[in-house]
Every structure is written in C-alpha cells, then in structure tokens.
Design a protein around this nucleic acid. Structure first.
Lengths: 341, 341
DNA sequence: TGTTGTTTCCAAAGCGCTTTGAATAATTCA
DNA sequence: TGAATTATTCAAAGCGCTTTGGAAACAACA
C-alpha cells in the first residue's frame, strides 16, 4: 500500500495524507485521526527510498571502522556502536558502516561515503590530536560529530569525557596516598584522549611536587599485552626506583599489570596500587576485577547513544550552536588503591 | 551534476547515458567510452536515493546485533561484522545495523527493518537450533542468509563451518593420545553450533569406546569466567576421575581453563591437554596462547566476507539454488596437547 | 528493389514521496 | 450583509534514476 492508494481509499489528496501523517499543523485533527487509523489498518509504511529522494535526506548516519584493530579497541568500538545503533533505531535513523579495504585509504572511505550521498552525517570516533578527517569532511560538505575531540582548526561538534580531569583526579589520589613513583600506561600518543590523560596525570603529580620519569609513561596499544610487558619492565627496577602505583588507560592493560605483579610476587592493593579507566564494557567492569579496581568510569555505550542524539539534533537545527558536551568521569575508589608502602 | 545535466552535456539521452554507465550491451563501445570520460571529468555520481526508488533495491544488507551480549560474543560479532563491511563496501553495498532497544523484541527489530524496506536482505548470525527468524523473514518476504545453520523447516541459504567435523577431529585426537576423561566446555546448548560440536565430540569418543560423563559437558557463555569456573570444578574431582583433557569452544574459555589449571598447580601440555576452537580473532590467535594451543581454526572474518558475497549473489540470481557452503576447520596441533599421563 | 535483422539511440512513463502555489470552505469582522 | 481572514484541502511539479516500447540508421538478404 503506497501513498496514492491510501489517499484514494480515503478520498483525500496525497498532500493531505502526507501532511496528516507527518504531523503538519494545517490539517484538521479529525482528518488526521481518520488518516492515521486508515494507515494503521492497511499497514501503510512510507517508502524510505521515495522519501529520501524527495527530501534529499537519507535518514542514515555513517560510522567507519577504526583502522587500528585490536582486541580492546574492537570491544570499545562495538560498545560505542551498540549505543549508536540503539539510539538511532529509537529515532528512526539507520547506522551504516564503512571500512577501508585493501589499498583503499581511510580518506577514500570517507570520500566514497560522501560522494554517494548515502548518509546525512558521519560520526567520528577515536580522533587523533592532528586528525585529517574534520577538514576533509568540512571541505566535502558532510556534517559530522566527534566522539572525543581533536586539535583541528575546524569548528566541530563533539561529545567527550573529561579525560584530563579524570586522570588528574586519579594521579592526585595516588599522590595523596603517598605514592611518589607512579607509572601511566597510556594509549598511543597520537590519540587526543591519550594526550589529555597524560596532561591531567602530569598536572596532578606536578601539583604535589612529584617529578615524572619519562620511562614511566610508555605509550602503546591499550591491550593486556602492553600492561604485562611495561609493568614487567618497570617492576624489574631496583626496589627504591620501581613504581608503587600504576594508572592504566584501560582495564585490559590493568589485567596485564596484574599479571606482571603476580609474576613478581606482588599483590595489587597491598604492594602495588592500581587505577584504570573503565569504559563500562560488558563483563569488564572494574568492580569485577580482582581485587575490585579503583577506576575513573564513564560508559562508552551511553556516549554512543548521546552522540547520535546530538548528531540528529545538529542535522535538524543546523543553525544552533554546535554541541560541545564534556562528561565528567567519576573516580570510584575500590580495593586496588592503598597508601604507599 | 546529475544524469540529466550530464546527458545534456553529451548531447545524448538519459537512457543512453544510464545504459552506458551501467554496462548495458546496447550501447556502442565508442559512446560508452565518451560517456565514461565525461562522467569522470564532471565527477558524476548517481544518486543512491533515486536509484533505489527506481529499482526498488536499496543496495543495503541488514545485520542485527545479537541480543546476548558478552565480551567474547561481541568480539566474534565485530570480527564477523568487519568482514561483512569490508566485502560489502568492495561490492558497493552498504551494511546497516539493527538492534533491539528497551522493550522492543528481537522479532520487532526484524519486522521494522522489513517494513521500512530499507534493506534488500538480512544476514542472520548466531542461529539457534530452533530459530524463529527464518520463518519470520520468509513470511515477511525478506531474503536472508545464515551464518551458521538451524533446524528450521524453511529452506535457507547458509555458510557454516564444519563444527561437527572439527570437534570430532579434536576429540579423536585426544582419544588417540590415550585420554579417556575428556571435558567439553561448550557454548549455550540452544545454539546450533554448540549442538553440532557436541555431536562431533560425542561421536569421536563413542568411536573409541569412551563413555561421556554428562557433567563433563557443561554449557554456558563462552567466556573466560566459564572456563575458569567449570574447569575449576572438574579439577577438584579425585585424581582418578578428573579430566585429563579439555576441549573448549573458544579461546576465551581456554584462558579460563588455563587459570584454573594454574590454580591447581597443573601445567597445560604436560598435565592437562587442551584444545580450543580458534575463530582467528585479532590478538587471540591460538599460536599466541601460552603454551601454543592446539586448535580447530577458521576465520570468522573470512566467513563474514564470504557471507556477503553469497548473499549478494543470491539477490542477483534469485533462481539459482541457495548457497550451502560448509567450511572445514583445520585441526592444528601445537604444544597444548600431549599423551595422557 | 523491398524485406528483414541489427545496432544504436531516444521519448516518456514510472518509482512513491514532499512541497509549492492555489483553490475552496468556514469563520470573523465591520 | 459583504469583505477579509483563517482553516482545510488539493492539483501538480518535482526529486534523479531505470526501463519500456519504439524509432532511426544501417547492413544483409532474397
């Protein structure tokens, strides 16, 4: 059943039926009710393709798989994506995915998505400090929103968590517990969130007059392997030099740190303090860590939901100021932190 | 630049230009070349929306987030999804995702996707033994393909791996190494793949005259936690009763088994034999296990790529027999298996 | 020569919706 | 009461593509 048939049934014009269904004011409530009932009765569903053609809007948001694929990154992306999809479907939007394949560069993926005009806007995740995508998309005329932030000169809408504040709080807690040798196992330096976290970390220690050893801040993918390797390395330092506390950018890394501690016969929460950022991924909550983990936490799934809301709002009111939302990440103290030995 | 403008530029009709670009035979090669050159020159891209409306095809495949979300399930889904997206974008198809939200049932998600006619076909993953989706989609007239299989009476196209054969081979290897007490840590019984694996496992042991203890075949989500718990339980049995070998449905579970063995002071590859199925997920290859893990392996990412190919082929030749591809899963022997003590 | 095929191209009719510009009916105002 | 508003409804023109049913040009055949 299409619009023409439905309006014929009702003895109304397509205009009126279309407007009745889309909530336009210039149609009487009585007619609207009649139209709605008939639409319901006949199971009428407007054709998405026809609407797209007529309006020039696709009702679709695009997201591109990060090109750095690893275990934890995939989990974070999936959790974020799940949030996006959930909210999008609630708001009758679709999410479509892009991905570089073979020799195709990431830029080509974005170009392709834009040229084909299949999406109304794109959601950028995992932004780099110097990320080429905002400039590219602006030049191509494609609206976008960033989950995170970047140093781009372009204006952009974004939703981010307060990484700097969170890691400031974490480092400050450790300093206040008397820890003087604190390591930061961070993500790759090129990511904006990693830079923010490092800045917060350094600021807190600086505030307490603690010098930061550069080799205490290695940067590598946020996987367990990294935690194991780097913590293992640091724990081999002489007793008076080795860190008494670790801050990790992910719970995966924290698991690696725990394994390194186990191997060194050290116990977390007794011999070594540990704080990690907790993105609230399924089955990886800091509260289930052994021991329960002190963590800065913020749900990346919630962020996905909110990003989609903001993005759609942006599309619907292009003249409103761009969204710029920064969520605090609470520091939840659990059993993995204790005063310095 | 749209088709009308382009054909005006060329002094040709829209028909001819459209046909030239879409490779129809009734246009001379000379004209085709001229059209292609002009299209390239002006950066002409056909409007996806217009094409969709005209053809009734959306050029989009749908995939729905599994409703069971857990760490390993997410990783498997993401890896599969990544493969789908990669191949789809190569073939100029889009992938859009659906997801149940709030009170909306999974069935409602499929209904919605179909009604809105936004996808040409759906890809079903993680099928249950008795899965309601094939019947639902057939009734709704939506083409689909299954990654995996199901016992549905409906005919369906699918790509699956030979789970039964793989686990037959794994169990047979262990039996031939002299193991008489072998446990199977499988996924939830309602999944078809889990049933297939159990069947293969039982068949191999039966062939060697080994009775299977029911409590040696627990079913639970394929996460590390399950492996830890179930292996921990089984390893507490008296020495003469406890399993000397484990077969796991995932490397995640195998990690749990390793932790349980560590806790019991047992070493894998020396005291306990271990085989797992390896879906070739990033950073979780069986070869990186400690010790390197004997595994049945098959890339779930490759499966995603192939499923998309098959699905698109199905759409393009609806009268061809439905795809029914079964991939063998090689048993690769590494250091985690040894003769029974 | 006329007839039959081939090859190459085209005009025009959709696909199903939104939206503009007008017309008609109902209401209000002076 | 007639004119001016306001509230409803409509006809028709797109949106940009595909595809049907011919037509024109040319070659091949008898």
């Amino acid at each position: 059943m299409n619009l023409r048939e439905l309006s014929a049934q009702l003895g109304l014009s397509q205009t009126t039926v279309s407007r009745a269904l889309n909530g336009f004011p210039e149609v009487s409530e009585e007619t609207r009710a009649r139209v709605r009932a008939a639409a319901e009765l006949h199971g009428y569903r407007p054709s998405a393709a026809a609407r797209r053609l007529a309006t020039g809007q696709s009702g679709t948001l695009g997201l591109v798989f990060p090109d750095e694929r690893n275990l934890l990154g995939d989990l974070l992306f999936t959790e974020f994506l799940g949030g996006c999809v959930e909210k999008a479907s609630e708001l009758s939007y679709d999410i479509t995915l892009g991905m570089a394949h073979g020799s195709q560069s990431e830029e080509a993926v974005y170009r392709r998505a834009v040229r084909n005009a299949r999406v109304d806007a794109m959601i950028l995740s995992s932004p780099l400090i110097a990320d080429p995508r905002p400039a590219l998309l602006r030049q191509l005329g494609m609206p976008f929103i960033i989950h995170g932030r970047t140093q781009s000169a372009e204006p952009f809408g974004f939703l981010d968590i307060d990484n700097e504040g969170a890691f400031f709080a974490a480092a400050k807690l450790l300093a206040d517990l008397g820890h003087r040798r604190v390591a930061l196992l961070n993500g790759e330096k090129s990511y904006n969130f990693a830079a923010d976290r490092e800045r917060g970390f350094r600021a807190a220690l600086g505030l307490r007059g603690i010098a930061v050893r550069e080799d205490f801040i290695p940067a590598a993918p946020m996987v367990e392997q990294t935690g194991l390797r780097e913590a293992g390395r640091l724990l081999q330092l002489p007793l008076a030099e080795r860190p008494t506390a670790f801050v990790c950018s992910s719970i995966g890394e924290a698991q690696g740190v725990r394994r390194a501690c186990n191997a060194a016969g050290l116990k977390i929460g007794r011999d070594v303090a540990l704080i990690a950022h907790d993105d609230r991924i399924h089955d990886m909550g800091a509260e289930n860590f052994d021991p329960p983990l002190t963590a800065t936490q913020s749900s990346i799934g919630d962020a996905g939901r909110r990003v989609v809301e903001l993005c759609i709002a942006m599309l619907q009111s292009p003249n409103d100021p761009m969204p710029a939302e920064i969520w605090p990440a609470d520091l939840v103290v659990r059993a993995s932190t204790m005063p310095a030995p």
